[in-house]
């Protein structure tokens, strides 16, 4: 009996939550994604690394349909993103994204930023959402900043509010696009700690990052992209020591 239960759980963990198949995307004549395929299992932490302009941000934006794809298929929890009748809200409540530049709403307090979307978009009960938002603020260690406006917060604090804002939609997958790139070294730690905790709790995470040490530590799988293609993928532990593709090795020697 016990063995069966463990096996069922194991299977659930291995079930792919995001499946990306042969995705192509061009902006005008510029081909940004040239056939990208990958899949992300439930609770997996996937890191995407690669040189600037290789299409990492574009790929994340395709996953939650901020950018429509030209060809291929992206499935999130079985929802096909490349579908003209796509229910955008159904998709976006499942996939949260945090950006490099935080992008908080400057006219609302930290608490309000976190509460807005569930109240406005999901029409959830305000009191319920507030309770959840306060818990999330505590989780990112910013309870005392609930009533501060974004302009009154440091970059690292704003970024943690942005993470809490995404989490309040109760997504199944979180995407992080170079969320520490604009921060000074001291505050990078606060934000990475938050992500580390999320990963440990079993949140499915897709992160684009230049923090190789962090990638090596938290990631299960690493994908290296270059010129719109995934050049090399592998288990995180092995990836950094035994990458075989020459472009990957060159990139790694530059950033490590």
């Amino acid at each position: 009996m016990v063995g069966e239960g463990v096996m069922a759980m194991d299977k659930a963990l291995k079930e792919p939550q995001v499946v990306i198949t042969d995705v192509h995307k061009s902006f005008g004549t510029v081909q940004v994604l040239k056939g990208v395929s990958m899949s992300v299992r439930k609770s997996e932490v996937v890191c995407i690394i690669g040189p600037s302009g290789s299409g990492k941000s574009t790929l994340l934006r395709c996953i939650n349909a901020l950018v429509p794809i030209d060809k291929g298929s992206i499935k999130v929890d079985g929802i096909e993103v490349n579908d003209p009748k796509l229910d955008e809200l159904a998709l976006r409540r499942r996939v949260g994204i945090v950006f490099q530049s935080y992008n908080l709403f400057p006219h609302r307090t930290a608490l309000q930023n976190i509460m807005m979307a569930p109240v406005h978009v999901l029409r959830q009960d305000k009191a319920e959402v507030e309770a959840r938002a306060r818990k999330l603020l505590a989780k990112v260690r910013l309870s005392e900043k609930a009533d501060s406006y974004p302009g009154e917060l440091s970059g690292g604090q704003q970024q943690r509010v942005a993470i809490a804002r995404s989490l309040c939609m109760m997504p199944d997958v979180m995407m992080f696009d170079e969320v520490t790139a604009a921060l000074d070294p001291e505050t990078v730690k606060e934000v990475l700690n938050t992500i580390r905790e999320l990963a440990a709790e079993g949140m499915t995470c897709i992160l684009v990052t230049h923090e190789m040490g962090f990638a090596r530590e938290v990631a299960d799988t690493v994908h290296f992209t270059d010129h719109g293609r995934i050049v090399e993928s592998g288990d995180a532990k092995a990836f950094f020591t035994s990458a075989s593709d020459p472009r990957t090795r060159e990139f790694l020697t530059q950033v490590l």
């Binding site: 939650n64 901020l66 809200l89 807005m116 406005h120 999901l122």
Partner: peptide
């Protein structure tokens, strides 16, 4: 980028315009 953040949180064009 602010508008994009709203869209990513599920706001429709009209709702992001209003709020």
């Amino acid at each position: 980028t602010t508008v994009e953040a709203a869209r990513a949180l599920g706001y429709s064009r009209l709702k992001s315009y209003i709020h």
